[in-house]
Nucleic acid binder design. Structure first.
Lengths: 132, 132
DNA sequence: TCATCTAGGTGCAGGTTGCATATAGATGAA
DNA sequence: TTCATCTATATGCAACCTGCACCTAGATGA
């Protein structure tokens, strides 16, 4: 239910973490230069298989990474098909990925704090059920 | 850096999970009826201490829970201070909390898939460093 | 010639959220 | 009495994020 939309259901597909596509792209680019279309296909690693990521979001994130100095881009011809805008991660980009990693670890702690509260609460709740 | 805003830094404080305040409020309300101002204070359980949640968000979520039939509200006088709008979770609300729980567990899986990819990649990366 | 694939991109609308601000009753100190 | 402060709820706005629809255009092969 979270993420419903008027008329049609929004394709949120597990992307419940804000801007999660960004660290995924950073990690892929850390493995070597690449371009939008290829990155889109490699996102399967992160679970974007059933519900693939939207290409517009990817292109926008890549541009914003470049604007903030986390990557550089150049046009390159491939073996086939149209020219590609190939992105390379900068040193600042490496640092940014590390920052994202720490941020996501913090998110994980918050999540598990919630799980702990949930279990704790439900145990009390059920033991109260038995008493009454 | 994620979550920056023009001019000032946005207080995103690790709340990177979409609508995370909602399941927190649901869990608190599952423990018994309560009202906005009190809920705001009890959110500390979930790690909203250093950067407390914004009250406007809480009041909006409570209203939306009521609009969707997940809670009911009534005005009640307290021992002191102005009247309070007291919310009670409905049966549908219990189910909604359960749904949120499953959703967050899925989020956790996605998160750990990323961590696994990250560690995997960094190991390869470092072993390549040694070779060259 | 034309459909299809590859590749990159824009515009828009809907949803989420933090900040500023408004309102108002209750409380206690000056 | 006046006034600051606490308690309590609420609205408007702007920024941000994202999915969907749609567009352009080169390459490829039937």
């Amino acid at each position: 239910m979270p993420g419903r939309r008027r008329g049609r259901v929004q394709n949120r597909c597990g992307r419940r973490i804000n801007r999660f596509l960004e660290p995924c792209l950073l990690l892929l680019l850390h493995g070597g230069e690449s371009y939008g279309y290829e990155l889109l296909e490699n996102l399967g690693k992160f679970g974007f298989t059933e519900n693939p990521a939207d290409s517009s979001t990817i292109y926008r994130i890549l541009r914003s990474l470049e604007n903030r100095g986390f990557a550089t881009s150049r046009w390159a011809e491939g073996d086939s098909g149209p020219a590609r805008r190939v992105y390379t991660l900068s040193t600042a980009g490496d640092g940014y990925l590390l920052m994202w990693m720490r941020d996501l670890e913090e998110t994980d702690r918050i999540l598990h704090r919630f799980f702990s509260e949930y279990r704790n609460h439900m145990e009390l709740h059920h033991s109260n059920d038995k008493k009454t």
